[in-house]
Write a protein that binds this DNA or RNA. Structure first.
Lengths: 168, 168
DNA sequence: CTTAATTTTCAGAAATTACTGAAACTATAT
DNA sequence: ATATAGTTTCAGTAATTTCTGAAAATTAAG
């Protein structure tokens, strides 16, 4: 039927536009994170809106980038446990998918950064031998804040674990 | 008394070392944030371990940096509401101190970043017209995560407000 | 083992970032 | 009003980042 063929194509195109917009927008957001080039965000975006594993060659085609850039971005996502490799039986290709725990892993990694700030303040407080000055008051406030943030981040990890339980 | 004079001086030196270490360490931590040069962290560090307002000239001396770099870092800290200007009566100098709500302001700013991620996922979901695919499942998980984080960050703002009430 | 598809690594180029030092600007004390 | 201490801006430079494209390495099928 002609009607059908005419109708489906534009729909598909619109969906592709939405996905491409998402990929580029995520690229910009991720670029706002240190040591996260835009390409990392774009590859992450591709994995998020893909309906199955993607090879690096497919990512290169979708993003019109070099294989080198895709490989580097892929490594970053694997290192950060945002992406996962999956084998494709009967093929020497390696598929990439979004890690099932990508966001939980992101949260987990964030905790160590927050701890660095908390520990730095605490360590300096100890060096200053608890004298009572504006400086030590500042450091105590700094430490209290980052300890509080860490606590909340741990609660988010628990939230993930409860979610997972509910799914099963 | 000689004993006193001999004893106090090394103590002071040790304290200064501790402060300088703090300043440099915070420089490195802050350098880990996009669009935050190390100098911003160092100036922030100076303000945190200072026992009173500092002028830009004093910051330059402590950090052995150029006035230009100090001025730019100062502007960044003022824009982000990490630092506050205080007038010094009878002087044309402007003092800089750590903002009393520095960490609360940091948290507040962080929320808009998290919202960007949540909104991007939601917007793309709407564009994809709630089809039921792996892609939309990914986007729903992404949105749920960032909404959850936003909620926790708002709780931290409340925690700050409660703290402030207790202080008074 | 050989071959071919795929991935990684790396040199070089382009773009960006962050500093210095000097000149321009601002504001206050006299 | 003037002089001067203090601050900002900006051109130039050094360092860093991120990409491309090609060569090297890896891996699995035949």
């Amino acid at each position: 039927m002609q009607d059908n063929a005419v109708k489906v194509s534009p729909d598909d195109a619109r969906i592709d536009d939405a996905r491409m917009e998402f990929i580029e927008a995520l690229g910009f957001l991720v670029e706002g994170i240190r040591w996260m080039p835009r390409m990392v965000g774009r590859v992450l975006g591709c994995l998020l809106v893909a309906d199955g594993p993607l090879t690096q060659a497919e990512l290169r085609d979708q993003l019109d980038a070099s294989l080198g850039a895709v490989s580097t971005a892929t490594r970053t996502l694997l290192d950060k446990r945002f992406a996962l490799r999956v084998g494709i039986p009967g093929s020497r290709q390696t598929g990439l998918i979004i890690h099932p725990d990508a966001w939980r892993n992101m949260e987990e990694d964030g905790i160590s950064g927050v701890q660095s700030y908390a520990n730095l303040a605490l360590h300096t407080l100890q060096e200053l031998e608890d004298e009572d000055s504006p400086a030590t008051a500042n450091l105590r406030k700094m430490n209290a804040y980052f300890v509080e943030v860490e606590q909340r981040m741990r609660e988010i990890l628990q939230w993930f674990d409860e979610q997972k339980k509910l799914e099963q």
